[in-house]
Each structure stands twice: as structure tokens, then as C-alpha cells.
């Protein structure tokens, strides 16, 4: 049976040969997840919509350079989306971000820990990551999630958690080190 990664790799190959129907299928399958990723970092629908369009244009143009060896298609597309969002965010002044979505972020971050265990059909890799995250200190876990999912800088994470920036940096760094050895690769 074809895995979802294999199916998506095949779609990317078809995109590489100019098949726009394949891009449409990829879009239908992954745009809602990527839109959520972009919204979370950009906090504004107009920016996230524009970024989503750019992300899929990148996927279309770069499809021929995708190789399964570099990770799953979804990991690849998520990286394109996150990096684009980080670039956009950096180019904007801080006052262009409304604070509206911030509470939602923190609620979700808190809720995820308990919510996740109940998610059916979670892949083995996702479960392993979650188990490893649970072995970190709660502060390390939270700092990593805020940086990765929220797109916050060390400084912003420090502001939100209310700890000095040096402390945040070491939480993130040690947390990531521990994650790597826990995941064992």
C-alpha cells in the first residue's frame, strides 16, 4: 500500500513536470494545515493568505528539487511555510501585529499537552516527539513550542514567559539537545 508520503512525493513529481492538477490535489490535502501554521506566526489573515499563495508557488517551482532523502513532503512544505512566515514577520514592525491571537496561542499550547495523547491515528514519529517533549522540563517544552509554533524570538519568548532572555536561550538550547538524544538520530 502506498503511504501518504509516497503519494505526496508522486504528486510533487507530477508538479515538477508541470501538472497543475497535482498541485491542486496537494493544495486540497495540505493547505488548511499550512494556513494554520502561517496564521499562528503571522497573526493576520491577509498576511497569511498572501503567504499561503507564495508557499504554493514555491512548492510548484521547487517540486523538481524535492528528494525523499531530505524528509517527508509535509515536513518540506511546512518548512517552506514557516520560513516564509518568519521572513514576513521580520520585515514588519512589531506594532503591525495585533495581540488578539496571542491568548489563543497560549491556550492551545497549554491544551496540546493533554489533547495530543487522545488524538487517534497520530503517527509513531509524532508520538515519539511528544514523549520526548514530555521528558523536558515544562519550561524547556514551553519555550520550544513558543519559538517553533508561535514564531517568537528569544526576546519575545522571554517577554511572554517573564524570564530573562539568557535563561530562555539556555532552555531552548538544552531542550533541543535533550530532544535530539531522546529521539536518537
Amino acid at each position: 500500500m502506498e503511504t501518504i508520503d509516497e503519494a505526496r512525493s508522486a504528486l510533487l513529481q507530477r508538479c515538477a513536470s508541470g501538472d497543475s492538477a497535482a498541485l491542486r490535489t496537494l493544495y486540497d490535502q495540505s493547505a488548511p494545515q499550512l494556513f494554520s501554521v502561517l496564521l499562528r506566526i503571522l497573526h493576520r489573515r491577509d498576511l497569511a493568505e498572501e503567504a499561503l499563495q507564495e508557499v504554493f508557488m514555491s512548492v510548484w517551482r521547487k517540486a523538481s528539487s524535492y528528494r525523499p532523502a531530505r524528509g517527508s513532503p509535509m515536513a518540506w512544505m511546512t518548512s517552506i511555510a514557516r520560513y516564509r512566515a518568519l521572513d514576513i514577520r521580520r520585515s514588519l514592525k512589531s506594532d503591525q501585529f495585533s495581540g488578539d491571537l496571542m491568548p489563543i496561542l497560549e491556550e492551545t499550547v497549554a491544551a496540546e499537552d493533554t489533547d495530543l495523547v487522545e488524538k487517534a491515528g497520530l503517527s509513531g514519529d509524532a508520538q515519539r516527539l511528544e514523549e520526548c517533549l514530555q521528558r523536558l522540563t515544562p519550561q524547556q517544552n514551553q519555550a520550544i513550542r513558543l519559538a517553533f509554533v508561535g514564531g517568537f524570538t528569544h526576546e519575545e519568548v522571554a517577554g511572554r514567559i517573564g524570564s530573562p532572555i539568557g535563561t530562555i536561550k539556555s532552555w531552548v538550547r538544552r531542550g533541543l539537545q535533550a530532544l535530539r538524544s531522546c529521539l536518537g538520530s
Binding site: R24, L39, A48, W76, R82, K119, L129, L179
Partner: peptide
């Protein structure tokens, strides 16, 4: 490798349907 390890965190977000204009 790091992208592959961490992207699952993004998969935990609830999907949000983009407006049709984007496509």
C-alpha cells in the same frame, strides 16, 4: 533532520480552511 523531527509540532495545530481566492 531537524525539520523532520520538529514539523510534527506544526501538525498539531487545528487546520483552518483558507478562502477560495487563494487557490
Amino acid at each position: 533532520r531537524w525539520e523532520q523531527r520538529l514539523f510534527w509540532l506544526s501538525m498539531q495545530l487545528p487546520p483552518v480552511q483558507p478562502p477560495p481566492e487563494v487557490w
